[in-house]
Design a protein around this nucleic acid. Structure first.
Length: 650
RNA sequence: GCCGGCGUGGCGCAGUCCGGUAGCGCAAGCGAUUUGUAAUCGCUAGGUCGUCGGUUCGAAUCCGACCGCCGGCUCCA
């Protein structure tokens, strides 16, 4: 164990995680993590003396949450005799702990557990680290099967101590643990238990299913409140709720799980989205060519592609015709695009060939995985396949990255986490193929200047891929774009082109979807914008509100003129009061509401209210139309501002 | 698929524990009001209580199966 050097020059060979009073200053409490000290002093104490946080706060938060998890596990074991406990790590924003209990937990049990935790905090039990020999540890956890399993698997893992294991003990309760922990249970911060759920032991669906309790923990009550507030904010943005409220789509029971219908307002939105995606792909610079392919195909296609072998369970069962030929509904578009390519002999001059389709696919996802628009059984991908020569591959991958960034910028996504996913356990194609395909992606990534991390074994079964996760308006990451490099399907489908050398060559294929499915992307956008779409995507861009019946005709005339300018405008001529109609428009998040009364008709102006509630009266109609059509045409993310027309009356 | 929770008019909910044939608000329709920037007033209509089966004299309520939704796990071409 390496010696630690403290700021004052002294050294220590304290064990990992052991609290070190005064190591970072007179009032600070630190713990050793690996080869550095982590300040624990932000953890609130009654004297509230807080030294500067010298090490990363994330480390301290981890320690705090991990310690909270221990205390919770202790509380659960106190309340539920015979409890078996599995693992309880810190996670983003909190922690969980898995248990096997004689009874099933319900959310109603959480307050009791919190109550018991409070007593343990009150007792201020020290976290005591102990090192045990393996045999000793096995004995200590004699009635804790999960712990014994962990201990027994330890020497398989590199550097886990081998002969000894460490435990952390609070009074009589102890857990196998590397630490570190806060010095005592009285030093937990603000915490709250959130939910109970099922989880498999070791993440293996063939093993025991345990009961998991999720909780969150923060240094201060304010931070906890802030987190709970963020949860509420996320709930407020929930696309399933907003989708209903904004009348965008629904999932009728009669269709079956995971299948939806788009309502007119959702249709207007989707149309705008599709127009944008189509336009940008098909323009001269990006050079994609539109193709259209059917929704079903004979089984032979899926046998060749390998989908039947690997994904039969997640495909809808086949239908067969009078000749007993099986037809499958397509779960992917790629084999069809391969057939487009193979429809005639290709020359090296034809490459790269970039095929674009808004392709609708059906996947029989397991019921428990469905989630609003985020995971559905029928949806439409902005699916493209780029077939090219190897010498074109890196450039084509880079072009796909550029298009990805360009498209996402339009929606206000600028912060990405990028992964390079490598060969999974079950894959087609040989090692060399995989190595080469991965190299090309890596090369493109390196020259793109994008930061990325390698996700081992996360690739598609036919090739490695690069995934883009975009950060939304409230900081959440969504996996959207995937760019996959495929040497396997060209082989399986025997794709060829005639080279300059008059020989046959095998092309390579890039699979890429930038938005993913339009449905999922719509869900992400709803949450990103909290339903307040930028003008160009808003289902209804302008709502005209006549004040009294006598203004209805003028209101409809106005809406007609807006339509002629290419805007989506509606008139609310219901016999309600103006405040009520304004409220209705606000609730539907219509970008602009125009209130029409005598003054506007007389002056030929409009009274503009945006959905933030800003109101400007007496705006010249041409000024309004000009700015708003510009805002829509440029796909601006920002609302226009208006000023009253200068008075022209003499 | 697995664990747990849930399913009552278009939406949000009460009633379910302790069986006795459904109630509120919003939305909708009608009437009055003709309204100036986030909810005018009144009236009316609308539900075989997810579906099927069982227990019972009687089921929204108890039991079972199925369908669907929610929180997770697993999976995600």
């Amino acid at each position: 164990m390496p010696k630690l050097e403290f700021p004052d020059g002294s050294t220590s060979d304290l064990a990992d995680g052991e609290p070190i009073a005064g190591a970072l200053g007179p009032d600070a409490i630190a713990a050793r993590v690996g080869d550095r000290l982590v300040d624990l002093s932000f953890v609130p104490t009654e004297d509230a003396s807080v030294a500067p946080v010298l090490a990363g706060e994330a480390d301290g938060l981890h320690i705090l949450r991990h310690s909270t998890a221990h205390v919770m596990a202790q509380a659960v074991c106190d309340l539920f005799p015979g409890a078996k406990y599995a693992i309880g790590p810190p996670i983003e924003d909190g922690f969980y702990y898995d248990f096997e209990l004689h009874q099933t937990l319900s959310p109603d049990d959480l307050p009791r557990i919190e109550q018991r935790m409070a007593e343990l905090v009150q007792a201020d039990q020290p976290f005591v680290r102990e090192e045990l020999g393996r045999e000793e540890a096995l004995e200590r956890f004699a009635d804790q099967g999960f712990k014994r399993e962990v201990i027994e698997s330890l020497d398989a893992d590199e550097g886990a101590g081998g002969e000894t294991v460490s435990i952390y003990r609070n009074n009589g309760w102890a857990d196998l643990c590397l630490g570190p922990h806060v010095p005592s249970s009285g030093r937990l911060g603000a915490y709250k238990l959130l939910s109970v759920a099922g989880a498999y032991w070791r993440g293996d669906e063939h093993r025991e299913q345990l009961q998991r309790i999720y909780g969150t923990a923060w240094p201060t009550q304010e931070q906890l409140d802030g987190y709970l507030h963020r949860l509420e904010e996320a709930e407020r943005r929930d696309h399933r709720k907003l989708g209903r409220e904004l009348d965008l789509f629904s999932f009728p029971d009669e269709l079956g799980a995971g299948l939806l219908v788009w309502h007119p307002r959702g249709g207007a939105f989707r149309r705008a989205l599709e127009d944008f995606v189509r336009e940008i792909h098909l323009d001269r610079d990006h050079g994609y060519k539109p193709v259209f392919t059917p929704h079903i195909a004979r089984s032979v296609l899926w046998e060749t592609s390998g989908h039947l072998a690997k994904y039969a369970d997640n495909m809808y069962p086949p239908m067969h015709d009078e000749h007993d030929i099986d037809y499958y509904v397509k779960p992917m578009n790629c084999p069809f695009h391969v057939l487009v390519y193979k429809s005639k002999t290709r020359s090296y001059r034809d490459l790269p060939m970039r095929l674009f389709e808004l392709g609708t696919i059906y996947r029989h996802e397991r019921t428990g995985t469905l989630h609003g628009l985020m995971r559905i059984r029928g949806g439409t991908q902005d699916d493209s396949h780029i077939i090219c020569r190897r010498d074109q591959l890196v450039d084509e991958i880079l072009r796909a990255f550029d298009l990805t960034l360009e498209i996402h910028r339009t929606f206000g996504f600028s912060d990405f986490v990028v992964n390079l996913s490598t060969k999974p356990g079950m894959a087609i194609g040989d090692e060399q193929m995989w190595a080469e395909a991965t190299q090309y992606l890596q090369k493109a990534l390196d020259s793109s200047g994008l930061d990325y991390t390698v996700a081992e074994g996360e690739g598609a079964f036919y090739g490695p891929k690069v995934d883009f996760h975009a950060r939304d308006a409230i900081g959440r990451l969504w996996q959207l774009t995937t760019v996959q490099c495929d040497f396997a399907l060209p082989e399986r489908f025997d794709m060829e082109y005639m080279g300059e050398d008059n020989e046959r060559h095998r092309p390579v294929m890039i699979h890429r979807a930038i938005l993913g499915t339009l449905e999922r992307f719509t869900g992400v956008l709803i949450e990103h914008y909290a339903g307040a779409f930028p003008l160009w995507l808003a289902p209804e861009q302008v709502r005209v509100v006549p004040i009294a019946d006598r203004h209805a005709e003028a209101a409809h005339a106005l809406a007609r003129r807006l339509h002629e300018s290419g805007l989506r405008a509606e008139v609310d001529d219901s016999r309600e009061t103006v405040p009520k109609k304004v409220r209705a428009a606000q609730l539907m998040k219509v970008p602009y509401t125009l209130v029409m009364g005598d003054r506007e008709i007389e002056a030929g102006t409009v009274s503009v209210r945006d959905r933030e509630g800003h109101e400007v009266r007496g705006v010249a109609f041409e000024d309004f139309v000009g700015k708003v059509t510009e805002e829509a045409a440029t796909r601006s993310l920002h609302a226009s501002s208006f000023e009253p027309a200068p008075s022209t009356s003499a």
